[in-house]
């Protein structure tokens, strides 16, 4: 289904670009490669990320849809579920390979990521320290998150 996988990606891309989930824009990094999507996601208003503009990379493995897409924050973000390194990877829940369901659609993936910005999941965190702060010192967490938005996620 190599061709079938490609067909599905193209179909999903046209859906997502035609009717994008709230606050997101999608385009291909390279028009000739449908496997790497660039996502522009606005910080949701009800979150400390409000006002920020985040750039994400959605990479579809060649086995897609039988393996999950890989989601990386290229814009630094202070979040328990995004690794604080040069990868900025978000890998939990439906994005994990042992929980991935081939019928999942990429628009659902984008909604999932956006909902995580509104409501982080500290129990399945990649950044334990941030998760701890999120649970015990929400005010301090939000403060740092907002500082990072100003510092890294301003209008580019």
């Amino acid at each position: 289904m190599a061709a079938g996988g490609h067909k599905r990606i193209v179909k999903e891309l046209s859906e997502v670009t035609g009717d994008p989930p709230a606050g997101t824009k999608v385009r291909l990094v390279d028009e000739s490669d449908v496997h790497i999507w660039e996502i522009l996601m606005d910080g949701p208003e009800q979150s400390p990320y409000s006002g920020g503009h985040f750039k994400l990379l959605l990479t579809l493995p060649k086995e897609y849809p039988f393996k999950p897409p890989v989601l990386n924050f290229q814009t630094k973000i202070y979040h328990p579920n995004v690794s604080n390194d040069d990868k900025g990877s978000m890998c939990l829940g439906m994005l994990r390979s042992d929980e991935w369901k081939p019928p999942n659609k990429l628009s659902a993936v984008l909604n999932y990521a956006r909902n995580l910005l509104i409501e982080p999941n500290p129990d399945d965190a990649v950044e334990g320290g941030i998760a701890e702060q999120y649970k015990s010192d929400r005010r301090g967490f939000e403060k740092t998150a907002k500082e990072w938005v100003k510092k890294y996620a301003g209008k580019s």
Partner: peptide, 17 residues
């Protein structure tokens, strides 16, 4: 530490035999 544990957890999550 918490970070190390989290890191190990992440490695174990990502491990695919």
């Amino acid at each position: 530490s918490e970070e190390e544990l989290a890191y190990l957890q992440k490695l174990s999550n990502e491990y695919e035999p």
